[in-house]
Design a protein around this nucleic acid. Sequence first.
DNA 1: GGACACATGTAACGGGTTACATGATTTC
DNA 2: GAAATCATGTAACCCGTTACATGTGTCC
Lengths: 210, 210
Amino acid sequence: MAALTTTSYAILGWLSVRPWTTYELAQQLRRNLRFFWPRVESRIYQETKHLVTEGVAKGERSYVGRRGHTIYSITPKGRRALAVWMRQQNDRPLLEFEGLVKVFFGASATPEQLLAAIQSAKVLADEIQAAGVIVAREYLEGRSAWPDRAPLSGLIFDFLWNHAENLRRWAESSQQEVATWPTSSADKKTERAFQVFRTAIEQDEKRSRG
Amino acid sequence: MAALTTTSYAILGWLSVRPWTTYELAQQLRRNLRFFWPRVESRIYQETKHLVTEGVAKGERSYVGRRGHTIYSITPKGRRALAVWMRQQNDRPLLEFEGLVKVFFGASATPEQLLAAIQSAKVLADEIQAAGVIVAREYLEGRSAWPDRAPLSGLIFDFLWNHAENLRRWAESSQQEVATWPTSSADKKTERAFQVFRTAIEQDEKRSRG
DNA sequence: GGACACATGTAACGGGTTACATGATTTC
DNA sequence: GAAATCATGTAACCCGTTACATGTGTCC
């Protein structure tokens, strides 16, 4: 049987807080990790079993009527495994952005199709920030389930919120630009791109200098 | 055999520009798409064959010594398939960020381990921008292979460069923050998080109003 | 008592990665 | 002529998704 994956540790991390049923775990992963570690909920059912066979978690089975459910909790071996994982090398953040692939081959697309491809960024930005507003209010109004988690949540929130801001800013400015393309000359379009390139190089040189 | 995936279209998109060998395709995907559609190069060898069985590409086989290689080109059916894809719904951008998962369960980590988890964002930011500077210079100095692609490249560049800026900004500010944690009170840490939450809510309200 | 959300799974499939193998070309 | 790099793949495995199935509680 294969070694533990990041998905395994995402579940094990929750078990290190307290025991949970599979359904509760699925909820937590969905509420809290979906924007930076998205997994379908049915995955959890297999993964918890995997954790048990690896000896890092144990499950206590009980019944409601004819339907069983399992409460999982972490084992001492599980806590050690979590600590080892924390010491391991981290993968770089990974981005998959189909809309950008379409933009890349935009020579085969209509302006309307480009606008739609770009729009997918805005949709995600809205989702992230809608969820973010709820979390932020919970903390600020003292309604959070784990108020002492605020410092860690703040770090994650900071990243995601600004990720969303970047998605939105890009989508809006790109859609504005693409909207001009049907009536804009090739030189004009190219000049706009060159401005982007120049700004980046200036930023890079400023950073190099210190 | 399954339908075409985004990876299929990423290859088909290149074939719509001109015919390529598998190796050249692998290079192009690596150079141009790796930051928003990352795939291992060995995937290309299987996927090109898939494109042929689907009738959207054809391969012309030739030999150098005992070693074969294939030049793939797009078929009329392939161009139609590409056009259909462009009309289809776009997936949202997808982020996988193991470092954030570690931060999330940071209660089980040392400050040093948190710093390392955060660092993975900076590593990626550097990679994106190092590649970006090269591309930007090529365009600005007229050394680009497809100068008329500049407007489209500009859109993609704009997104990736600012994505990298966001990764770097977050990594630096978070590392600064975490560095203070060993000597900082719980209240102080929480207050910093609350500032993040408040700023976000203000931004959100400002946007709602106008 | 019908509809619907909540809750708990299983089966099958496949895209993607890892690891490996090996031929051709260039460099020193 | 050895080593390194460029080039072309194959085999095996598995994580993850899709699609499906079904029990339980609640609302009207």
